[in-house]
């Protein structure tokens, strides 16, 4: 019943904060990696290069679905903003269902920008199954397709180092975020711009996805403070012998 209570109160908070945010514009703290991401999106359109969005190999029927959905939400808005570029963005996935959704999301982005006829189905790709298959399939895209920035948003493990290594050699900017602890450590060591922990889920809000996305960040902050208070309260209660 506690889980149901958390879910219901989170849903209520999200609705309330969304309506509240509609009246006042969102103010977001600065995250350098997301500032660079915003810049990379603009630059790719200006200099006619391609953005490569890697969605990882997290499926939709397991615990990694959250990061996959966050990556898709960002992809939707990146596609809308870069669809008129000479070199449209490419999305790669290591899970077939995620690959299908990437295609659908890209198409939706093109349609929202009013250039649905420019959408190419092969811009959403399944590069391989599993961690190494996905990495091995994504590496030639970075080498051969005039990519200026790799945006890694999803589930990545240590094999992310193979992707960042080839990006380094090709002088391609990498902005990385993963929900996996080993993946985050590797991205921290091997990229200039890394998003740690829940910053992955903030990406879409920072690229202007809308009020609901900004509201969900506020809800995350409120819930985080509640968790902190619960932990401190639990420790205090244990200390005085109540529990």
């Amino acid at each position: 019943m506690i889980e149901f209570g958390i879910l219901l109160s989170s849903a209520f908070l999200l609705l309330a904060v969304t309506f509240w945010k509609r009246k006042s514009p969102a103010r977001l703290r600065e995250i350098p990696a997301l500032t660079n991401l915003y810049r990379a999106i603009g630059l790719s359109v200006e200099d006619g290069t391609r953005l490569h969005i890697l969605l990882g190999y997290g499926g939709l029927l397991n615990a990694r679905a959250g990061s996959a959905l966050a990556g898709l939400a960002a992809l939707r808005h990146i596609a809308e903003r870069t669809s008129v570029s000479d070199q449209p963005p490419v999305a790669s996935a290591g899970d077939p269902s995620l690959g299908l959704l990437a295609q659908d999301t890209l198409q939706a982005g093109y349609q929202a920008a009013g250039v649905g006829e420019l959408y190419v189905p092969t811009s959403g790709r399944v590069t391989g199954f599993g961690p190494f298959g996905f990495a091995a399939g994504a590496m030639p895209i970075i080498q051969n397709e005039n990519v200026s920035a790799n945006l890694m948003l999803g589930h990545f493990g240590p094999e992310a180092a193979l992707i960042t290594d080839i990006s380094d050699r090709e002088n391609v900017l990498v902005i990385g975020a993963s929900d996996d602890l080993a993946g985050q450590a590797v991205l921290f060591a091997s990229t200039q711009d890394v998003l740690i922990g829940e910053e992955l889920f903030a990406t879409s809000a920072y690229i202007g996805a809308g009020t609901t996305h900004a509201a969900s960040l506020t809800v995350q902050d409120i819930l985080r403070w509640l968790v902190i208070l619960a932990l401190l309260g639990g420790a205090a209660a244990k200390f005085v012998g109540v529990i």
Partner: peptide
């Protein structure tokens, strides 16, 4: 915990 909260709000959206 941060990732779990992010997944929760993403799922709700």
């Amino acid at each position: 915990i941060g990732v779990a909260l992010g997944s929760l709000t993403t799922g709700l959206r």
